[in-house]
Amino acid sequence: MESAAAQGAMIEAEGLGHTYKGDQTALDEVDLTLGTGLYGLLGPNGAGKSTLMRIICTLLIPTRGTARVCGHDVTKERRQVRESIGYLPQQFGAWRNHRAEEVLDTLARLSGLSDKKERRRRVAETLELVGLDAVADRKVKKLSGGMVRRLGVAQAMVHEPRVLIVDEPTVGLDPEERMRFRQVMARLGRDRTILLSTHIVADLGGGCSQIALLDDGRIEFQDSPEALLERAVGKVFEVAVDAQAAERLEADYEIVSRSANATGVTLRGVSANGLPEGATPVATPTLEEGYLAFMAARGRTEAARAGQEGADLAAETVDDA
């Protein structure tokens, strides 16, 4: 039987589950098969995204099921798995008294890049890629929150791992940095596996191969972005109303965006149970709308919105830091 890696699956999970102490089930019967490409992992807070990522990164031993990375079992072949991955955790910091390039150099060495010349080249390249080349010799404690986040991205990539696991990578990044990040991810996704967990659906960009939606520890959707969008057709609407009507609609429906115009307000929203009066269905919803529509259909719009708001708040907080 050919190995999963040989067959193209870089990440596999079968019946994966994890229950924390206190009987809190974070993951339940997760099946996943990911090959080369960019994969998005979406879901509200507490859905189990980080738990899944930590299991894949060998930081957590699952209580049920199996998972393999590049054909290596995450519980039995942990070193081999670690050799294959680069990981950016949700909470990332670095040695505050080290310079940016020192951090990268050290972590590159610890990831197996022993050749000094090669390592220096990779460090310089990676710093340039994430836009930190100008502050390479600055100590981490002197970097802004966004810069630290970019450093986190850099350390995950510097050794060019086959599998990249990134958890909320764009928290704290400004729009330009996010766009650049999306471009990098898209480019990297061409020849490696990237599992990207985010609340910001836009982070997935156009290069995303598949999206998995995790809710309450279960994968509720795993398909291409197009498939998600298809499902959202008919559930996403647009309507132009006056301010008063807009208030009523905002109370009754999940409003995705709001723009003012000369006569009033144009609202775009999602609905699982029919469109409001006067609304027109959106023929080509965005991915974010597709995600919200999906969650709305599950009755989880509050949760989805809370997750989105939380992501925005986290971004503001990091920026402030």
Partner: peptide, 14 residues
């Protein structure tokens, strides 16, 4: 404290 622990733990270092 410096939030390096997961980054280090995920490295292939024993």
């Amino acid at each position: 404290r410096e939030r390096m622990v997961e980054v280090l733990d995920s490295r292939p270092v024993g």
